[in-house]
Nucleic acid binder design. Structure first.
Lengths: 257, 257
DNA sequence: ATTCTTTGTGTCACTGCGACACAATGATAA
DNA sequence: TTATCATTGTGTCGCAGTGACACAAAGAAT
C-alpha cells in the first residue's frame, strides 16, 4: 500500500488494515563518538520517551513491517534487523497510553475493541550507521532523536525492559557471532571497532589482545589507507570481508564445541 | 478458565476468547535411547504430522499459553520453554488446514474472519524428560507421539522450518550455555550427556575431551553411585548443580570476551 | 582364562589467552 | 629544534586450554 509519509497535516490512519493484537518495538542501535546510541521518540501528549514501533499490515511479515516502520523513522532502505523476544505480559498494555496521541493525530478506530485491549509486541533490534540516519518522528511524537545508551532515562510502558533485553541479547551474541557491519562506516579503525565492543560489553578490552582475537576471526580486510587528520600515529583502516562476515553470522564463530 | 481436558466427546470451543492472529507452535525435545526425539501430532482429517501448538487466551502471556498447551499434550506441569522465533510469512497460513479438523471436533467460529486469515506463530522449544511425558492428542488429532529427530518426515505447513530453526537455535546455544537439565533424568552418566550433545550438534565428540570440558563448566556434581546393570565398567552417575547451572544459563559460559 | 567393550584418568604437542613491553609516529609544548 | 605525550602496530611471556590419543580398570561374554 502507499507509503505513509510523515506530514505536518493530519491524515486518516485506520487500524483496520493491521493485524490485531500485534505490535512491534524496535531498539535501533547506532554508534557515534565511541558511544552506543539508541533512537527514541518523544510522545506528543505525554512527553514520555519511547522506542519506535508500530503495527503489522495484514499482508506483511514481521520483518517487512519492521523494515517499513524503521524506514519511516530513519530514512534507510536496508536495515539489519533481528528479532530477539516477544513481550506478551497481559498487563503490559491494558490501557494503551498512545491512544490519546493517536486520536490527536487523527487516527480513527473502526473497531476500538482490539486496540484498546492488550497486544503482544515482537521486539527487534536494528543496527544502523549513525551518520546515514535521518531521524523522523511519526504522527504521535514530537521528536525522534539519538540518546547515548548510558543516558537513557525512563521510557514508556515496558520499553526499558525491551531495551535491556536487546542489549543482553547483543552481549550474549558477541560470544558466537561478530558485530560491527551495519553499525560502523565502510572504513573504520580497530580502535573504533574495539570501542564498539566495549560499549556493548560494558567493559574495557586490552587493545592488543582484541586486535589478535578479532583478526583471528578472519572477517576484516586491512586497507592500504590510514585514518587522516588524527592527533597521533595514524591508525590503519579496515573494512569487513562480507563473505566471511556473513558466514560467521550464519555458522557462528569457531569454538567451544 | 477451566482446563480443557482431552475427551472423546465433542466439546464447544470458541475462538472468541483467544487473541486473534496469534498462535504458538512448540518443538518439544525429549531424549531417550541416546536419541533426540520430537513430539508430533497426527491431524485427524489430513493425517499430516504437525508440531503441537495452539492459541493464546486474552489474559495469558505467550509463555503461560505455551505452558498450558504443553501441559495438555505432555501432562507435565513445569516445562522448560524458550521462545526462539516469530514465524510471520503472510503465505504461511493463508488457508488454515486445521479448519476441517476443528469443525470436525466441534469448534465454532463466532468470527471466522480472523481465523481463516493469516496468523503469526511464536515458536517455542521445550525440553522435557522423555520418561515423564504422557503424550495426549488434542481434539484435532488422532495421535501424539515421539519421533526420532533423524526420522522426521514432512510436517504440516512450515513446521519443518520451525523444527529446523529450533534445532539451529539449540546448536548455536551450546556455544554459550549448557544443556541437559530438563532433558536428562535426575541422575545420568557423562556418556548420556555427551550423546545428548552429539545428537544436537550432529557430530561425534571425543569422550575424554568432552569430559574435561563439561567438568570445567562446574555445573555437575559427581555422585557416589555408579550405574547398575550395565554390560561393562559401570560409569559414575552425575547430577546437575542447579545453582551453577542456572547461573550459566543467565550469564552465559565464560569465554570469548 | 582370554577377549571385548566401556569408562576413568591422564599425557603430549600445540594453540590461544591475559598481561604487558617496545618502537614508531605525529602533534604539542617548551 | 628538541622533548614530551598519546596513540598505534607488533610482539613476547608464562600459563591455560585444546585436540588427539594412551593406558589401566572393570565387568560381561566367549
Amino acid at each position: 500500500m502507499e507509503a505513509e509519509q510523515a506530514s505536518n497535516e493530519k491524515r486518516i490512519i485506520t487500524m483496520k488494515d493491521f493485524l490485531s493484537h500485534i505490535s512491534l518495538d524496535c531498539v535501533v542501535f547506532g554508534f557515534h563518538s565511541n558511544q552506543l546510541k539508541v533512537l527514541v521518540l518523544q510522545m506528543k501528549t505525554t512527553s514520555t520517551w519511547a522506542l519506535p514501533g508500530g503495527f503489522v499490515y495484514e499482508d506483511e511479515s514481521m520483518e517487512v513491517a519492521a523494515s517499513r516502520v524503521l524506514k519511516e523513522r530513519t530514512g534507510l532502505n536496508e536495515i539489519f534487523l533481528h528479532q530477539f523476544h516477544v513481550f506478551s505480559d497481559p498487563q503490559r498494555s491494558k490501557q494503551n497510553p498512545a491512544v490519546p496521541d493517536m486520536i490527536l493525530a487523527g487516527v480513527t478506530f473502526p473497531e476500538k475493541s482490539w486496540f484498546e485491549k492488550r497486544f503482544i509486541s515482537v521486539g527487534f533490534y536494528a543496527l544502523v550507521e549513525f551518520s546515514q540516519v535521518n531521524p523522523q518522528p511519526d504522527e504521535l511524537s514530537d521528536a525522534c532523536e539519538w540518546i547515548n545508551l548510558e543516558n537513557i532515562g525512563i521510557l514508556m510502558l515496558d520499553h526499558n525492559e525491551i531495551l535491556q533485553k536487546a542489549l543482553e541479547t547483543l552481549r550474549m551474541q558477541l560470544t558466537f557471532q561478530p558485530i560491527g557491519y551495519n553499525l560502523l562506516p565502510e572504513k573504520f579503525t580497530l580502535s573504533e571497532l574495539r570501542k564498539l565492543y566495549e560499549t556493548i560489553l560494558g567493559k574495557e578490552l586490552d587493545r592488543r589482545n582484541f586486535q589478535r582475537k578479532i583478526l583471528a576471526y578472519d572477517i576484516l580486510t586491512r586497507l592500504e589507507e590510514v585514518r587522516q587528520g588524527v592527533a597521533h600515529k595514524a591508525p590503519a583502516l579496515y573494512k569487513f570481508n562480507l563473505v566471511n562476515y556473513k558466514r560467521a553470522l550464519d555458522e557462528g564463530l569457531q569454538g567451544r564445541w
